[in-house]
Design a protein around this nucleic acid. Structure first.
Lengths: 400, 400
DNA sequence: AGAGTTACGTCAATGTCTGTAACAAATTCG
DNA sequence: CGAATTTGTTACAGACATTGACGTAACTCT
C-alpha cells in the first residue's frame, strides 16, 4: 500500500538571505506603485505593504535614485497637516519594445514603465520570411532610437508571431506566413539583443490585461486574424501550457464530422469563423483588410455576409463554450479583427454561451469587444517586455 | 570567492521580515526531504538547497523536534569517513483526510506525510443529501480515530464532490446526487472541523500527480464516473479557473447540432461517452458498477457495447483535442471508470488526437490509463490536505 | 502669527539570520 | 592502533531589516 511521493510545484527553489529580503520588499513596494491608480504617498505605501515608514522611506529613496519613480507635487489628503507627496512611475528610464507580425502589416511599439504607448509604427509585410525578419530588425532599431530620444532605454523585446512558439524563440508553424520552424529569436538577436517570441493571441490578451481599467483577472481574448487564437488569462497570468502552445482555438471542433480543414481535421472553428471564410461568399477576391470589408458589407445589408457572420458568431460561441467549460473564466473579449465585428458577433456568441456553459446560470459570462483591438498584440508584446522590470525592479537597479 | 547571486523570492503580496526568511528556508529544506526518493543526509541537503551546513543543522533540529522527520540508521556514502545519517519523513505526525462521494459508494482515506495510504474505507451511498453528509461525517470520525491509533493527527480534510464547487465549500450542481447549492463544508464543519470541498476530477488529477513515479508535470486526467470531468495539471499545479469550475469536459460539444443533453445544450460529450450511455444499448437496467459491466460485455464480444465504446473513444478524443488545442498538455490519463475501460478507448482517443491536435506532429500526446484508477479522487483529496503541511511545514511546527 | 495636525526623515537599539572557522564524532585503511 | 577522511556541531563575527523614538517639514485653522 506504499505509494512513493514526488515533488510538486514548489514555492521557490532558492534559499533566501537578508539581501533577498530587501529585494523582495523593494519589489513589493514597487508593485504597489505600479498598481496604484493615482500617485501614492509613502504613508499609503506603508499601509498597503505592511512595512514601516522608515523602511518605506529607504526603499523609496532607492527607487528615486534609480530613476524608476518620480515625486509629484504635494496633494491634499485631509483638511490639515502636511500634504502627502505623490509618487508615480517615471516617464523615462526603462521601456519595452514590442514587435508584431500581422497578416496585413508589421508593427513596432515602445511602452514606458507607466504602460503608456510612446511609439507605434507600421510597415508593409514582405512575403519572404527572411525579408520580414530583416524589416522587423530595422523597425526595432528605429523604435529604439526613437525611445532613446525620449530618454527611454529598451530593456527587453518581445515578438508576437501568429502561431505556436516553442522555447520563446522558434515559431513552429504559421500558416499565414508560410513559416515552419523559424527561429525568429536567433534571427533578431544580432540586431536587437535577446528577443522573446510568443504567440500573438496570448500577447494580445496580456495587452488587454495590462490596459484594462477595472482590472480584469480572468478572461479569454479571442483574436481573429487569419488564424483564430485565444489568449487565456487566469489570476492575472497568461496561461502558456506545457510547451507554450495553448490557445489554438481555431482548430477546436465545432462539428466533429464537419468539412475538412487545412489542418487535416474536420469541423474546425476556423472553417466557420475565419475572416477569409466569412468574406468568401460575398467577395472571393480577398481584400487587404478583410475585417473592414466585412464590416462594410454587413452594414450595407449584404445577406450572404450577414448569414456568414451569424454562422461565425454561433460557431465562436460553441468553441468558447468548450473553452469556458474546460477552464472557467468570466469574461470573453472579442479581440483583433473580431473587435471590429463585435456588433455582428456578440449576440450569437452570447446565445451559445448561455446554452452551453454549464455554470452560465449562476454566473453569466460577459462578452465584449477588446478595447485595444488589432493593436493589442504589439502593445501586449511591449508591455510584457517592460513588465519584467515592473515585477522585479531589482534587475534595473542592479544595472545602474 | 564570489558570492552566489540569489534571485528574489516570488511575487508574494506580503512583506517579509527576518522571521519569514527563517520560515522560507525551513520550508525549502523540508520540501527537499519530501522530494527525495530515499533518505537524505544533512550534507546532501546543504548541497541541494544552497544553504550552509550550520543552517541545515539548525533547521534539521527543528524538524526533528517537531516530529516531521526521523533519523534513519547511518548509511555508507563513500569508502571512508563518518557515514551519513539519513533523514526521512516521519510515519507519524500530521496526516490528511480525504472523503469522496461517488455514484456507487462513499469513501474515506487517510494518508501520512510520506504519501502512504494508511486507511481506506468504503460505505454505500444513501440517496438523500443529508444522509450522505451524515454518513461522511461518521466515516471521517472513524478515519480520524483510526489515524489517532497509529499516532497520526489529521490536520486537514478535503471532500471530493462530483460537480462544480464554489469557494471550496458549496457544491453548485451535482446531477448524479440530485444536489444543487449544497453547502457541504458547513454541513461537515461541526463533526470534522474545517473541510475543503473540491471537484472530484480535479482531485483525482492531483492524486495521480502526487503518485506519479516519473513525475508528471503537465497532464489532464479525465474521470468518467457519471459525469465526465477533467482535472488539468499545469506545471505541477491544478488549474482551478476563476471560480473553481474548470474541467466540465462532459458538456463540451462534440457535434454542435447533436442530440439534446440533460443540461439543455446539444451534442455534449456526455451523450457519447457517459457510462450510462455506453451501457444503455446493451443493458437498459443500469448495473451497480457500470464500468465493470461494460468491461464484461465488451470482453464477451457484445457488438452493441463494442460499437458504443468505439463511439465513446472517438468522442472523447474530439473533446480532448479541443482541450489540448486550448491548453497544451502532453499527457492524457484515462482515470476513474475510464481506467478500467482504457483498453477499449485508447485507440479511438489517440486517433482523434493525432488528427485534431494542431501540434501533434511535433510532440505526440501520450494516452494511458491512470494508475490510481477510481480511488484517485479520495487519495488525491487526502494528499491535497496533507500537502499543505508538506509545502509549508511551519504551520505544523507553530501548532506544537 | 501661533497652535494643531499630518507627513516624512534620521538615528540608535534590537534581533536574527548567514557564513567562516575551528572543533568533535564516526568510520575506513594502512 | 593511529592517521586520514567525511560528517555533523559549536562559537563568533558580520550584515541587514525592523522597530521605536525623536526631530523636522509643510500646511490649515483660529
Amino acid at each position: 500500500m506504499t505509494r512513493p511521493v514526488h515533488r510538486v510545484a514548489p514555492a521557490t527553489d532558492t534559499p533566501v538571505r537578508q539581501e533577498s529580503l530587501r529585494a523582495h520588499n523593494l519589489s513589493l513596494t514597487f508593485r504597489q506603485i505600479v498598481g496604484a491608480p493615482a500617485p501614492i504617498s509613502r504613508i499609503e505605501l506603508a499601509v498597503a505593504t505592511g512595512l514601516t515608514r522608515p523602511t518605506i522611506t529607504r526603499i523609496v529613496d532607492e527607487l528615486l535614485a534609480g530613476g524608476l519613480i518620480v515625486e509629484a507635487g504635494p496633494a491634499r489628503s485631509g483638511n490639515s497637516g502636511r500634504p502627502r507627496v505623490g509618487l508615480s512611475l517615471a516617464p523615462t528610464g526603462p521601456a519595452g519594445l514590442g514587435l508584431d507580425i500581422r497578416v496585413d502589416a508589421l508593427s513596432a511599439c515602445v511602452v514606458d514603465l507607466t504602460g503608456t504607448v510612446r511609439h507605434l509604427a507600421f510597415a508593409p509585410r514582405p512575403p519572404a520570411a527572411a525579408d520580414t525578419l530583416a524589416r522587423l530588425a530595422d523597425m526595432g532599431r528605429a523604435a529604439m532610437a526613437a525611445a532613446a530620444a525620449e530618454k527611454l532605454t529598451v530593456v527587453g523585446t518581445t515578438l508576437a508571431a501568429p502561431g505556436p512558439v516553442e522555447n520563446a524563440g522558434v515559431v513552429r508553424f504559421a500558416p499565414v506566413l508560410g513559416w515552419r520552424d523559424v527561429d525568429a529569436a536567433a534571427a533578431l538577436r544580432h540586431a536587437l539583443g535577446e528577443v522573446m517570441v510568443d504567440n500573438d493571441a496570448g500577447l494580445a490578451a496580456l495587452g488587454e490585461l495590462y490596459a484594462s481599467a477595472p482590472a480584469l483577472r480572468n478572461f479569454v481574448c479571442v483574436s481573429g486574424e487569419f488564424d483564430i487564437g485565444a489568449g487565456i488569462v487566469l489570476e492575472g497570468a497568461l496561461l502558456r501550457g506545457a510547451r507554450g502552445w495553448s490557445g489554438s482555438l481555431g482548430h477546436v471542433a465545432v462539428t466533429a464530422d464537419g468539412p475538412v480543414c487545412a489542418c487535416g481535421a474536420t469541423g474546425c472553428l476556423q472553417h466557420y469563423a475565419g475572416l477569409q471564410q466569412i468574406l468568401a461568399p460575398a467577395a472571393p477576391a480577398a481584400a487587404p483588410a478583410p475585417a473592414v470589408a466585412i464590416d462594410i458589407l454587413a452594414s450595407s445589408g449584404d445577406r450572404d455576409t450577414l448569414a456568414a457572420l451569424d454562422r461565425a458568431g454561433t460557431a465562436l460561441g460553441v468553441a468558447l463554450s468548450a473553452l469556458i467549460n474546460i477552464i472557467d473564466v468570466d469574461t470573453v473579449l472579442l479581440g483583433g479583427s473580431y473587435s471590429l465585428l463585435a456588433s455582428w458577433l456578440t449576440e450569437g456568441v452570447e446565445r451559445e454561451l448561455n446554452r452551453r456553459v454549464l455554470t452560465a446560470s449562476w454566473a453569466p459570462v460577459s462578452v465584449r469587444p477588446a478595447p485595444l483591438g488589432p493593436d493589442a498584440a504589439v502593445i501586449g508584446a511591449a508591455l510584457s517586455a517592460i513588465d519584467r522590470v515592473r515585477q522585479d525592479p531589482n534587475s534595473w537597479l542592479a544595472r545602474a
